[in-house]
Simulated assay, not measured.
Amino acid sequence: MSTAPGTVLLSGIVGSTAYGLAHAGSDIDRLGLFATPTEGLHGLHRPAESHVTTAPDRTLHEAAKWCRLALGCNPTASELVWLPEDLYEVRTPLGEELIAIRRSFLSARAVRNAYLGYATQQFRKLLTRDTTDPATRARAAKHARHLVRLLDQALHLHEAGHNLVRLPDPERVRDLGERIADDPARADRLLAAATDRLDRPGVLPDRPDERPADAWLRRVRAAHWTPTRDADPTG
């Protein structure tokens, strides 16, 4: 695993493995967040906020960027604090604190916009695939599985206030993905039904509560502040 750009606070295995949709040839995807040294935030040039590597496949977001993504209910970033216990690989005390405040990031509008937006992207990709070709049909089925998974997660968040990362019935998602690949109109109907349910009142607030995230981020900055002692410029 490559050198981290700062102190990794929380990381784990995400993607198809986390959803229960992995097969023998599936990649292992990792996601995490890190704290850059606080002093590095005070200079003219700010350090990079995300680092992506392949072999292994790993994405790391700086703590502040991750918080912004999570407050927007970004489906990919948000799942980091909702993983099954056995999929975490790094859990520091500050990472544990973040898991403890995960519900404060949620809001009805952001869940609706983010999850429906990502699901619609998968639908558009699905429509561009030539399903008469075996290779491209497999990609179409993958897009369809992600569409179903995103809608299931959105509805569970909206109606139960919990992110269902590990799917309770992955075989249903696989089967439905295959059927959608053969008949994309099924996806159009799923999107319409999910949109209708997401437009109804749910358990989430209209807006997220930013205060716990702000307080947590200030604790992160304090914990990673190690100022250097420059020479006295007056000599």
Rank of each mutant, 00 (worst) to 15 (best):
H158P: 03
I28P: 07
T234P: 09
D232T: 03
D214K: 14
A55Q: 13
A22C: 07
A215T: 15
N113Y: 05
R219W: 07
A77S: 15
P5N: 02
E49T: 14
V52N: 13
D86Y: 07
G25S: 14
P212C: 07
S104M: 05
R91W: 01
R197A: 12
E97T: 08
H45T: 15
G20E: 04
A64P: 03
T228I: 10
R200F: 00
D209V: 11
G12R: 01
L80W: 00
D214E: 15
L106V: 08
M1T: 08
T195K: 10
D199N: 15
D196L: 14
L60A: 05
I13D: 00
D209S: 10
G235R: 14
I101T: 11
V90I: 09
L21P: 12
A35V: 05
L41F: 05
L33F: 04
V148Q: 01
P168K: 11
T228K: 13
V90W: 00
A194Y: 00
M1I: 09
R179Q: 15
N163I: 04
A222K: 08
S50H: 08
E79D: 04
H61M: 10
G43Y: 01
R174W: 03
A154E: 06
R139N: 08
L155W: 06
V81M: 04
R129P: 01
P5H: 00
R174Q: 09
T53N: 10
P227F: 02
M1D: 08
S16K: 11
R197G: 03
R229L: 14
P168C: 07
E49L: 06
P56V: 07
T132S: 15
V81F: 00
D206I: 04
L155I: 13
G25W: 06
P75G: 05
G25T: 14
